[in-house]
Design a protein around this nucleic acid. Structure first.
Lengths: 231, 231
DNA sequence: GTCTATATAGAGATAGAC
DNA sequence: GTCTATCTCTATATAGAC
């Protein structure tokens, strides 16, 4: 199972209200009265995948809609059949990336069953997040790199989307502390941001440093839990 | 002592060969035959400081030379008196940022004296790097955010500049391991990139998470050396 | 749904006055 | 050293044919 497979298959345009009731209506392609056609759904996914890659490679402003269209196998003008503007496209690409990462991590933790310990759950979350970061690297990299360059309004909405995911991690950490698996003098908020910072930074690592998600997660969990000093 | 002070005062145009013999000639303002004038040197610094801020806020491509010029109190056309192109300006801004950070960290470690232990030296380096990241935040943020968006040639040169700084850290870590202060089964290369990833990510943290360099460095050192699990 | 063609605006760079 | 004016290219977005 790879995140890439997850990312490429599951993010068809959601039926409004299905999953994020009342919160956000994802832009829909034509046939607005009914369901999107099979063909348009596939093209839409190709556009989003291409957008993630190009935005991550070139940054927000340097990305030309023509680059995305070409990568998706269509012409620039045709993009406007799916998205009303560059901003609408980038917002949807970001939303999909966070949504799929959160789904993947939650399902990995859930798979451990009810009576798994706090540390095991954290370790599973670290691995799943590492998988998402590395295997859906275009979405992750786009997210990490361009968030500071977005128009104000787009960024605000995106921060809301990320909030839910952050809250989930906060709970994982609180639970682990409650069961005595994290020292009392560690600031959990700082810890969470350090973990994300470390894991997400892997997208910028040179090739000679890159590790598989398993190796990376194992090193990260070991260092964060046990420390690097001999015991 | 703040890095800001360091950054703003010490990066006058280097006399070619003075510090980086044969490696790179920083672009020089006019009066090329002799020394730059006092006035031009000051304007040049204002331009670089403004460039760091604007590039970090808007990204590489979205940054208009007009924004930088305005922030520096001059008109767009005048920029070309100092830098031949946008790329030359961004390259110099990046070079100065890395150079000053490295200076600051080396001097903090040196101040410990010859017989300081490996862990103390690392802890001083972590604090100094945190200071540089936080207090020269415009240069750091510009560096971290736009490196993935640079034209190929600019990025290549910049990676060379960073290499020296990375080698210095590699030695700090090797020494600490040699004196038994770091476990044998920790991959030092991964550790170094995780440390940088964690420290540098602080520029993207929301305001409620931000910490002073001292608090940040203390948490980071404690977590990385001792781990978060109770002993 | 996808295309071609084009209106419109923005930004890097240059020229030359002061 | 700094300015104003302008050349030129590129990119978003629209219009309308197929």
């Amino acid at each position: 199972m790879t995140m890439t497979a997850v990312m490429r298959c599951s993010h068809r345009p959601a039926v409004a209200g299905e999953e994020r009731a009342g919160r956000y209506d994802p832009p829909m392609p034509a046939n607005r009265a009914g369901r999107p056609t099979e063909k348009s759904a596939l093209t839409r996914i190709r556009i989003l995948d291409s957008a993630a890659r190009v935005f991550s490679e070139r940054g927000y402003a340097a990305t030309r809609l023509e680059d995305i269209a070409t990568a998706a196998g269509i012409k620039t003008g045709s993009l406007y059949y799916y998205f009303a503007s560059k901003d609408e496209l980038v917002a949807e690409m970001l939303r999909v990336g966070v949504q799929e990462t959160e789904k993947h991590v939650r399902s990995a933790v859930r798979a451990l069953g009810k009576d798994a310990g706090g540390r095991d759950r954290l370790q599973a979350a670290i691995l799943a997040h590492a998988e998402a970061v590395i295997e859906a690297i275009d979405y992750t990299a786009a997210n990490a790199r361009i968030v500071g360059q977005l128009p104000e309004e787009v960024r605000r909405v995106h921060y809301d989307d990320q909030r839910t995911y952050g809250d989930y991690w906060a709970k994982l950490l609180r639970d682990a502390r409650a069961s005595g698996e994290i020292r009392r003098d560690v600031d959990l908020l700082t810890l969470r941001f350090l973990l994300f910072g470390a894991l997400n930074s892997t997208i910028e690592w040179p090739a000679r440093v890159k590790r598989s998600p398993e190796e990376l997660a194992s090193q990260v969990a070991s260092i964060f839990f046990e420390g690097v000093a001999p015991r």
